[in-house]
Amino acid sequence: MAKPKIATASLAGCFGCHMSILDIDERILKLIELVDFDKSPINDFKEFTGRCAIGLIEGGCANEDNVHVLRDFRKHCDILISVGDCAINGDIPALRNNIPLKECLEEAYLNGPSVYNPEKTIPNDKELPLCLDRVYPCHEVVKIDYFLPGCPANAEIIWQALVALLTNKPLELPYEMIKYD
């Protein structure tokens, strides 16, 4: 029987939660026995090769590309999991949620104290994804089946959740494992 496939993506996040996936240490070998990785930065697969059992999403939605990827994940994955605080509540990127987008761009590219931009231009290549009006948690864009909080979500909680889901066991997280930081 073919192994189930999992996919991962980092949207508006810092890749910290992906570091946590790698942080399961030697258990990654065990994971490889249980699953194949499909689209993921870990193997650098850019496109889905087929249907996946589980999709792990790091980061919230800050731009149109994030939405596009997230919806693509929803289409291809049976179970979609928000991993980490950015996916769950926007976290640091969501600090811009009460600041008008124009101000954000100007602060980032023109007025910020450390900005060096002699041409005084705000990048606007057509290849650049457009920003959303604010940062959205993933579950406000698509249906999310499970949430694994943490900043980053720690390796243990990711491991426990994956094993439980892949072996069809109930997900029971010990107290010390639920952390929002």
């Binding site: 149109e64 939405v67 008008p100 987008l101 124009k102 761009l105 606007n124 457009l130 920003c131 959303l132 009006d133 604010r134 959205y136």
Partner: peptide
């Protein structure tokens, strides 16, 4: 959600 940036850009 995109309208604002479309207008700025």
């Amino acid at each position: 959600a995109l309208a604002e940036h479309e207008s700025i850009a």
